[in-house]
Amino acid sequence: MTMQDIRELPLIDLGVKKTRTICGYCGVGCSVDVLSKDNRIIGIQPAMDGPANLGALCVKGQFAFDYVHHPDRLKHPLVRRADGKLHETTWDEAIQVAADGFRNVAQKYGRESIYGVASGRTPTEADYLMQKFIRAGFGTHNIDNCSRA
């Protein structure tokens, strides 16, 4: 039996789900199988047939996934209130405050005064919508991503 055969053996049904995805760290784009059980990640396997990695994976990609379930994860929207502190709130209020803020700034200083920074860590769809938000929303090209730093 080759290593590949072994990895392709069906998992004994312990309720473990296997999800084929792409590693979330560097730009090499290694294919991985995320193993999860009861909605928690319990391990990551490199994909032997991943076009970028052919079964290889580094220390970050294989082991640094516990941040996903870290207690520090943001679970609710936050807005800064009169006391100067960030407070949990509903999506409706958070989106309204965010939108009003941009609207007010655009009215006061002009549409050129708003700037968008897209991420090199989000899926492409987020980057596309960030540039569309700026271009379709304000007619400017005041949009960048984090590739310069």
């Binding site: 995805t21 792409i22 943001l74 492409t124 987020a126």
Partner: peptide, 30 residues
């Protein structure tokens, strides 16, 4: 002034393009 909580890498469906211009799918596991 406003912080909006995002789903992380393991929680979203989407696409990523790697350093060799390869368009690949990310899939929500949790």
């Amino acid at each position: 002034d406003v912080v909006l909580p995002a789903a992380s890498w393991a929680e979203v469906d989407g696409t990523l393009t790697n350093t060799e211009r390869r368009i690949q799918r990310v899939r929500a596991a949790v």
